[in-house]
């Protein structure tokens, strides 16, 4: 399944139409992703997480808003920047963190790592390390939903860098040709590694990338969870009605480096600082919650505390779960 059961469905982006409960749920979810990622960064710094580790900090509103428009049975697929997506799909923080540390208790028994995790139970199909490859795969998942007439949809996330891969357009074409129930979410965080969008894309209006195939697209403020939800809900309704795929371009920003070892020479500190202080999705939501009287500082602190406990427990589990047995080397190569 794609999201935890929780639903009010205002079709507009006006925060006033969202219940206090829903609003606080957004806060909780985004905070969980942020604290989880900070902890992952810390464990990386301690040498407990190896290899590539791509943090989602700054982009939390995107997956949180989109996933809250999905229902049980919908499917999700994304790239290697996947920790937030897994948490938003309701996967257990302990299993995700233990996969990051390469332990037996991880979702892939330690054999996939940060970039390759899956949960069939939660409808999460990875976690893919080849930039762009998840787009045909996600389209194939949509194909299966249509073939089996499940009435469910497939959500495929990709980056502003991935959007230039040829296979993305091959998939767009077939998704439109066969009217597949595919939601395409382009997470435009302004950079593909060190390359700013404008240095890689002849046209930077990424939501128009489906135009040639008649796929409608919309640009959304991906730092505003309410706007993300409203756009996603409209797209999901459109797709479920059998009209075929739709593209949402989420304008967002990643605060941290591309992966942990990123010298960050391609953008200024001021740029990052400005985004953080003016656009931060969690701060924006927090201000709204307080001004709307949905909650007070003390109650939010209590949520923070709960989240801290979840993350601490995940980190402890990720360090105490044993490394996989040597015999695991040979399992799961063949069925």
């Amino acid at each position: 399944m794609a999201t935890r059961p929780k639903k009010t469905s205002p079709k507009t982006a006006d925060p006033k139409n969202f219940s206090a409960e829903q609003t606080l749920e957004y806060y909780r979810e985004m905070m969980l992703i942020r604290r989880f990622e900070e902890k992952a960064g810390q464990l990386y710094g301690m040498g407990l997480i190896g290899g590539f580790c791509h943090l989602y900090i700054g982009q939390e509103a995107v997956v949180t808003g989109v996933q809250s428009a999905m229902v049980e049975g919908d499917s999700v697929i994304t790239s290697y920047r996947d920790h937030g997506h897994m948490l938003a799909c309701g996967m257990d923080a302990k299993g995700v963190m233990a996969e990051l540390t390469g332990r037996e208790g991880g979702y892939s028994k330690g054999k996939g790592g940060s970039m390759h995790m899956f949960s069939v139970e939660r409808g999460f199909f990875g976690g893919h390390g080849i930039v762009g490859a998840q787009v045909p795969l996600g389209t194939g998942i949509a194909f299966a939903h249509k073939y089996n007439e499940t009435g469910k949809i497939s959500a495929t996330y990709l980056g502003d860098g991935a959007v230039n891969q040829g296979q993305v357009y091959e998939a767009f074409n077939m998704a439109a040709l066969w009217k597949l129930p595919a939601l395409i979410i382009i997470e435009n965080n302004q950079y593909g590694m060190g390359t700013a969008v404008g240095r890689a894309s002849a046209s930077t209006e990424l939501f128009k990338r489906g135009q040639a195939y008649g796929i409608p697209g919309e640009q959304v403020d991906g730092m505003d969870v309410f706007k993300v939800f409203a756009a996603a809900q409209n797209a999901v309704d459109y797709i479920r009605s059998g009209k075929g795929p739709m593209i949402l371009e989420m304008k967002t920003y990643r605060y941290r480096g591309h992966s942990m070892s990123d010298p960050a020479k391609y953008r200024s500190k001021e740029e990052v600082q400005k985004m953080r202080s003016e656009q931060d999705p969690i701060e924006r939501l927090k201000e709204f919650i307080l001004s709307a009287g949905h909650s007070d500082e003390a109650a939010l602190k209590a949520i923070d505390k709960e989240i801290k406990a979840i993350v601490t427990e995940a980190a402890d589990f990720a360090q105490t779960s044993p490394e996989p047995q040597p015999s695991e080397l040979y399992t799961d190569v063949y069925v």
Partner: peptide, 21 residues
């Protein structure tokens, strides 16, 4: 019948197989 798009339709088929087709 697919368009002439090997990488694309192969990926679609693999995604469908992930789902049990």
């Amino acid at each position: 019948d697919t368009p002439i798009t090997e990488q694309g339709f192969t990926g679609i088929a693999v995604g469908a197989a992930f789902m049990g087709l």
